[in-house]
Design a protein around this nucleic acid. Structure first.
Lengths: 195, 195
DNA sequence: GAGTTAAATGTCAATGCTTACATATAGGTA
DNA sequence: TACCTATATGTAAGCATTGACATTTAACTC
């Protein structure tokens, strides 16, 4: 159900085509929801059938014509209702942890590789998030700029603030993971010395 | 693919029935992989067809008879191969973040509720993880005890250490989330004062 | 004796998601 | 001219997951 509302959310900032959305949801390193175009196109059609969005096809030959989706009032209402509902938290499924706890029979080298990959992965994420936070603060983060442009000035602080909060949360997470991986690697070195 | 290996992992500690596994994977608040019994039973059958596990049905009438699954050598090998492979990280799909960044039009009360739920959720997790870490350190965590019992003494430090690490990582995560939610709530109070 | 709960295993329809295949245009490059 | 890349939109098979339905036995409670 969440892809549906993630799409409505993005469309609540400005109308967009499936392609635009696929680009944003695909580069989602640094954003909050990943989806591929093969999920997005049919979902948009469904939203249209439900009356939550309308679409206008730009003129042009196939392969070049865009179909732009606009949020309807019904869509806006559905989004707001969903937003205010309490979240039900996704069940935990953590491949890395599963691997870690069962790697106890593997060579130390293999464990180290996993921990280093973990650190690297979150360092890469941290770099992206840090960059995006900087852009938010400078007021050059594209989706923020667009959203501010269509909302009353009185709400600007809240709009910016929530995005900053979300990004700071991601940064805090990444830092925690990096920190943990480093502690784990230190511990692992100690283990090797003993054998 | 991960459920498959999570099952093999659990079976690498000791043979178990679908019911046992469903219990452990269902109570997975505090563990690393959630799955329901309706996923587990068919998956075990598939693993048996692949030759990665064998099963023996305990005698008894239906409704009381257990089918116990044992890891085969092939299963052990498949598990080890998977464990040492690099992890491919799951794409990011974060409902809470999606909600947060689009809640900018909602009443402050609604935002506060979300942040408080977030804090509560991770406080609950933290309590479970903290308890489990204590049990790991005291050597009374059931699955740890069982695993140690079937492995050479020389590997005990590694077995315990990795589980402790994993749990410490979960604790660090929970603390980060709680901390973040508290900062966010403080910021939100400041926002209210301005209006 | 009737009713409830826990143990134990299963099926099935529907939804969500991934991966691969498919097609057409426009613009740039070798 | 031939090739590649980006733009743009789609389909479809298959796997993963959810939620509901279904059944039997044993033990406990009222």
């Amino acid at each position: 159900m969440s892809l549906k509302y993630a799409l409505l959310g993005f469309l609540s900032t400005e109308p967009a085509s499936g392609f635009d959305l696929a680009r944003e949801f695909g580069e989602s390193v640094g954003w909050f929801w990943y989806a591929s175009h093969s999920q997005i196109y049919p979902e948009l059609r469904r939203l249209e059938a439900e009356g939550l969005v309308t679409s206008t096809a730009s003129p042009g030959n196939p392969g070049k014509q865009k179909r732009i989706y606009h949020l309807t009032e019904q869509g806006e209402a559905a989004l707001q209702a969903w937003l205010e509902e309490p979240t039900d938290y996704a069940p935990i499924r953590d491949v890395e942890r599963v691997k870690l706890v069962f790697l106890d029979g593997a060579p130390v080298e293999a464990i180290r590789r996993h921990l280093e990959d973990h650190r690297k992965h979150h360092e890469d994420l941290l770099a992206v998030y840090t960059q995006q936070l900087r852009e938010l603060h400078r007021g050059v983060f594209p989706r923020l700029v667009k959203r501010l442009a269509t909302r009353p000035r009185s709400s600007h602080k809240m709009i910016t603030g929530l995005k900053v909060l979300a990004m700071q949360g991601n940064i805090a997470r990444a830092r925690t993971e990096i920190h943990w991986a480093e502690d784990a690697l230190t511990w692992l070195e100690g283990m090797e010395d003993q054998t």
